[in-house]
């Protein structure tokens, strides 16, 4: 089924939220609490607008390949504890920007601050250890390792990862703790039954779930998802969306790249729009489709279909609904 057809009004969206809480048995009928409600009150709906409590700040970040300027971001701040969507037409530089933020690639100019600390010179794995954990557009599950091994790998500060300690037995106690935690998270993601399967045997959607669960295992404060819903069947999309909301309810900041406007409308608290390497608009998801610059960018990018999708989505959402307020009431956090 196509989720967008169901988005006739806000109430339906809440329904999705309910079914999608989906992972663990405890979360089945729950809506996740949204600590970001109100966080964007009074935030300017303009590119580069300052946020009350930014976890990530990028300033004058640019990167060129050959003669092509792939990313040229003047200023952007990502609010702590919220779900921020990064959207834009194909080739807008979203993934490149992600790579620059996570130090998988290095900017020609500019600085990025994570938790107030400058990240230049910090290697990407160190950044991950500091709490900025990313996933990839094409899922990178470790195919020839079991699901449980995938999870356990992600735990930080494992003493058994030091070679000489690996030879001894000292790491076993920590290993048991790590294993227990991995099982707990797998349980939350409803994947316990497949813990001993090779990750390569999972379906595309299950891989996305595993990647997200694995990122959780790394104890992130900021999780960066590159197209988490790409290639996932609609049924699983709802489950994934629920998990993203749960991350937020647990105080984790989420930033994600996404093409599907329904997804963006459903879960994001704030939307940042990129086109031709730059940030052209920012705002709450409801207002972003009305932004002329955004519509132009999508039109100009020859992805007319996407533009239609934006328009459709915009038309379907009642103008007076603030989507960030939607998930209300059932704040029984599992």
């Amino acid at each position: 089924m196509n989720a967008s057809n169901e988005m006739s009004d806000a109430g339906e969206t809440i329904e999705f939220g309910r079914t999608s809480g989906g992972g663990g048995a405890a979360g089945l009928q729950k809506e996740w609490d949204n600590p970001a409600i109100g966080a964007f009150d009074g935030v300017d709906k303009a590119p580069g607008s300052p946020k009350p409590d930014p976890i990530l700040v990028a300033r004058e970040v640019s990167r060129s390949f050959g003669g092509l300027r792939a990313v040229d971001v003047e200023h952007v701040e990502i609010q702590r504890g919220a779900i921020t969507a990064l959207i834009g037409p194909n080739g807008a530089g979203k993934t490149t920007f992600f790579n620059l933020l996570t130090n998988f690639d290095h900017p020609d100019t500019g600085t990025v601050k994570f938790n107030g600390e400058e990240t230049s010179g910090v290697r990407s794995h160190e950044l991950a250890a500091k709490g900025m954990v990313r996933t990839f557009q094409l899922t990178k599950v470790l195919a020839k390792m079991s699901v449980l091994d995938n999870m356990m790998l992600a735990a930080q500060n494992q003493s058994g990862e030091v070679m000489r300690r690996g030879l001894m037995n000292g790491w076993r106690r920590q290993e048991n703790e790590v294993e227990q935690r991995a099982r707990e998270i797998l349980d939350e993601f409803n994947m316990t039954h497949m813990e001993s399967e090779y990750a390569g045997a999972l379906s595309g959607g299950q891989r996305k779930l595993l990647e997200m669960a694995r990122a959780m295992m790394a104890n992130p404060s900021l999780i960066m998802l590159d197209e988490p819903m790409a290639g996932v069947n609609p049924a699983l999309t709802q489950s994934l969306l629920g998990h993203v909301k749960r991350l937020r309810s647990e105080g984790i900041t989420v930033m994600f790249v996404e093409h599907d406007m329904d997804v963006v409308q459903d879960i994001s608290d704030w939307v940042v729009v990129m086109a031709e390497g730059s940030i052209i608009a920012e705002g709450p998801p409801r207002s972003i489709g009305e932004n002329q610059a955004v519509v132009d960018a999508y039109l100009g990018s020859s992805h007319a279909a996407l533009t239609d999708e934006i328009r459709e989505a915009v038309e379907q959402v009642p103008a007076d609904t603030d989507l960030t307020d939607l998930p209300e009431g059932d704040d029984t956090d599992g």
Partner: peptide, 19 residues
């Protein structure tokens, strides 16, 4: 050991291990 687990993860995908 966990050390060996990291090695195998590198064999599968370096970027994932880095992330």
């Amino acid at each position: 050991s966990p050390w060996g687990r990291v090695l195998r993860s590198i064999r599968e995908d370096e970027d994932a291990a880095t992330a």
